[in-house]
Design a binder for these strands. Structure first.
Lengths: 221, 221
DNA sequence: CTTTTAGGATGATATATATCATCATTGGCA
DNA sequence: TGCCAATGATGATATATATCATCCTAAAAG
């Protein structure tokens, strides 16, 4: 069942609007590795992450992907494609068991038409997603490998898990797809960080030992 | 003076709303190379390009910038920063004599609050800007130099000038900042393209001689 | 239960492109 | 008018990181 408070910025919605969403939506469960939507397919619903963790990625030719972001519960999924084109411009898949709320697109439009404050919140949200990719583009273009790996570690630490110790939820190959490199180069850099006592690394378990150095690497490339 | 039809999607605005914008806005002229707003300053107005050509760029340390997009008349400027943070996340400068319409941010908010259809258009517009950067990120990450230079040439040909012959409005250094490389590498690749009869190049004058090869380079990286 | 496959790790090698250096040309601007 | 700084062009060299190869382990598949 859908609770009102699972909808982002629900406090800006009236009881009627929340009720409309309740009637025009449903929840779908996914297992680890299940694809939620695939690049180049038509958009059909507004999606919200209810639980779990989702990777959003773009698929390139020759099997090379790049992971754009990791979505946590309480965030919209695929908004830019839905409003920008009506073909998904990227794919998404569950990286742990997850639930997604699907909302009818017409009902959502109806709400936006009548609720300017909510529309503005959505504009803010999409703008921030855009700015996030700007930063990622800067990182890719100007930083070299250690800086980009530091950026990836900080992303998990500050954004995804909000902790200095966590477990990578992805394979080395996928981590490389976040940092824009190959799995070999990622592994090498990670073991270097380990030898230099910047992080503790045991399999996928990570503990940041010098946040300062990580941040410096991230800042100075 | 501001004409209603200089406002993007003005057809969705009422006479009253256009009048409000007219009263709450003014036009500023810029010379070539003038900075319009600078990264890390506070956002203050909604901006629309009335005439000219604007580069939008992010400034990195050690004097390395990357140019995100070229804005033409009839487009908003800096929207993502205005709605996302309230500090500009990138800079913009005129690359030819230009005029910018500045609209009071509160008046604009007021319109958005009451005009859902317009808000949705804005959401669509910002979404497309976001998707554009996604694509750029893909290009930067997965393509090598010739592919990125081809991408840059296609950008001018298809988006900025809508013609297969045009004049680069930027220096080689700036062109390199679009393609995410150094000016030397850009120059080399451009002269290669010239020798391979893919383009004619005379100073900044460009004529695409084989659109097919350019597109193949762009697609296959 | 064995075989295959995917992930992780590490070394050797190749290569694309950045960096450094030089020189010619142009265009502000003093 | 003449000078200095910016731009464009090209060659030589350095280097970061991709690519290729191999090995080990664990999990999936037959």
């Amino acid at each position: 069942m859908i609770q009102g408070d699972q909808i982002p910025f629900y406090e800006l919605l009236t009881a009627d609007e929340l009720d409309l969403i309740g009637r025009k939506s449903n929840v779908v469960s996914y297992n680890k590795r299940d694809v939620i939507f695939k690049q180049d397919t038509r958009t059909s619903h507004i999606m919200i992450v209810k639980s779990g963790l989702i990777k959003v990625y773009k698929e390139g030719r020759n099997m090379k992907n790049i992971i754009l972001r990791i979505e946590k519960p309480g965030n919209y999924l695929g908004l830019m494609s839905i409003f920008g084109k009506d073909i998904h411009q990227y794919s998404s898949a569950a990286i742990e068991p997850s639930e997604i709320i699907f909302i009818d697109i017409d009902a959502f439009h109806e709400i936006l038409m009548g609720n300017g404050a909510y529309a503005i919140k959505l504009i803010e949200s999409i703008s921030n997603q855009g700015l996030f990719v700007f930063d990622k583009l800067m990182g890719q273009t100007l930083k070299q490998l250690p800086g980009r790996i530091a950026e990836m570690i900080l992303y998990f630490s500050e954004v995804v898990y909000e902790s200095e110790s966590f477990v990578f939820p992805l394979t080395r190959r996928e981590l490389a797809e976040i940092a824009g490199t190959t799995k070999e180069s990622l592994i090498r850099t990670l073991t270097e960080f380990k030898h230099d006592k910047i992080i503790d690394l045991d399999g996928s378990k990570v503990e940041i030992r010098s946040l300062k150095i990580i941040k410096t690497l991230n800042d100075l490339g």
